[in-house]
Amino acid sequence: MTHAESLPAWAAILVSLLLLLGAGLGLVGAIGLLRLRNFYERIHAPTLGTTLGIGSILLASMLFFTVLQSRPVLHEVLIAVFMVLTTPVTLMLLARAALYRDRREGSAEVPRSTTGEG
């Protein structure tokens, strides 16, 4: 990583911490995917990676390139905005699909529908 030699110490340490935090949260979320017991518990696990996890990695990337190129590099905000908008949508769609499938099979683990459909 010769390009990073010119990075000041404070920036390097901050970027390192943010990277480790983000990757760690992604890993914990993925471990949750393995350890939690049923689908509805597991659906909570990836939110760790999609909120703070990718957020801190984006922040690290922004800080790194801004300091390195001595001009504001902000396009990572695009991924952040996109993630904020899409994560709830995908998770809600998945939760609804799972509820629908479980109800159709008459599973006792999910509450009955109040709307009459499904």
Binding site: E41, T47, T51, M92, A95, P111, T114, T115
Partner: peptide
């Protein structure tokens, strides 16, 4: 849904009741 630990699962618009899954 974006907050870890809670997921919005369903909304019954006739009665205004939401179904939430909490970890």
């Amino acid at each position: 849904t974006a907050t870890p630990g809670t997921v919005w699962a369903e909304y019954d618009s006739a009665r205004g009741i939401m179904l939430l899954h909490v970890l």
